[in-house]
């Protein structure tokens, strides 16, 4: 892979594999692996939002969690601001690195501790990292106003709030330790459609205000197009296509991306042809040989069943597909 390291790269992932062992029996014999993330390379620049799209079970969430250090990588490197996270760091260093990356979760109901007040939820991390300015209440109020909630909510418990309000609290919690990078794991997909836009706008505002970088995980291409500078399309633990959002969406190269995009309803184009994929997502414990997408691909060739397609550069695009062999575009 050619070097993509640039001085303004905040996060760089190289050949990352996260496999979950399938353990059976008394002696914990490993019978196989669920290859949730299977050789992913991706980079995110400072201040940039990268969208990560794909079907359920394609490994998006695992990739996000691995970046957060919530899952162990089996292979590969995650480099954050020049520091390889798989290396052992001193406790202080590790804590600092952890603080600088935060996460927002999909389910606004289970992502807040039901036994803690909003005040405690927001100030716990600040206390842990010694970031408190002024009293607990003041610090928490500042965060609340950032996410558009009022002070009356400070001493309430999470279940007193609606899904949208809870997601705002989640965002405030992530902001409380002043991160530079936030993994947003489908932050709006559990919300009512009417609220989704508000949360998206809030996140975009905060990105400006605190110069954050986002990894925006979603299965909704239209949202990703709206928020992301670049898009990575994930299929069965791998990234099959990656490039600037508009370009990927206007001009998808990979058949899978094309199918995804054709599934997005566009007003006024109801009669448009939809590419319907056959079959289901194969099991990540036993991915197909060759190109992982070949059993469902309308253009599958003989070579697709045998050889894993290498990455090819097409302008700003990177695509893994035998339709687009490496080398200069024809």
């Amino acid at each position: 892979m050619e070097s993509i390291v640039q001085s303004n790269t905040l996060l760089e992932i190289e050949g990352l594999r996260v496999w979950f062992p399938i353990v059976r029996g008394v002696f914990s014999r490993v019978r196989g692996h669920i290859k949730a993330v299977d050789g992913v390379s991706l980079f995110i620049r400072r201040g940039e939002t990268v969208g990560l799209v794909g079907e359920s079970g394609c490994g998006k969430t695992t990739l996000g969690r691995a970046i957060m250090g919530l899952e162990q990588a089996r292979e590969g490197r995650i480099v954050f601001d020049g520091k390889d996270l798989s290396h052992r760091h001193s406790t202080a260093e590790a804590r600092l690195l952890a603080r600088r990356r935060q996460m927002i979760f999909q389910d606004p109901y289970s992502s807040l501790n039901p036994r803690m007040t909003v005040l405690d939820i927001l100030t716990e991390g600040m206390e842990e990292h010694g970031l408190m300015e002024g009293s607990k209440e003041e610090s928490a109020l500042r965060l609340l106003s950032d996410v558009g909630l009022d002070r009356a909510m400070l001493h309430r418990y999470p279940f007193e709030f609606s899904g949208g309000q809870r997601q705002r609290i989640s965002i405030a919690r992530a902001l409380s330790v002043r991160p530079e990078f936030i993994v947003c794991d489908e932050p709006i997909s559990a919300l009512d459609v009417s609220i989704q836009a508000q949360i998206i706008n809030l996140m975009m505002e905060l990105r400006q205000k605190y110069s954050l970088s986002y990894l925006f995980i979603s299965h909704d291409l239209s949202v990703v197009r709206h928020v992301a500078d670049r898009v990575a399309v994930m299929y069965l633990g791998r990234i099959v296509e990656e490039g600037p959002s508009d370009e990927v969406i206007e001009n998808p190269l990979h058949p899978y991306t094309q199918a995804l995009i054709s599934a997005v309803p566009v007003p006024g184009e109801e009669g448009r042809k939809r590419i319907v994929l056959k079959g289901d997502l194969p099991s990540p414990s036993n991915p197909p040989k060759g190109c992982p997408f070949h059993p469902r691909c309308p253009y599958a060739m003989k070579v697709c069943k045998e050889v894993d397609p290498p990455p090819a550069q097409r302008g700003a695009h990177r695509v893994n597909c035998h339709l687009h062999p490496p080398g200069p575009a024809s």
């Binding site: 957060m68 919530l70 804590r95 952890a98 935060q102 842990e128 919690r173």
Partner: peptide, 10 residues
Amino acid sequence: PYVLAARALG
């Protein structure tokens, strides 16, 4: 997720 969030907070 609330436990994962606490872990993420350090």
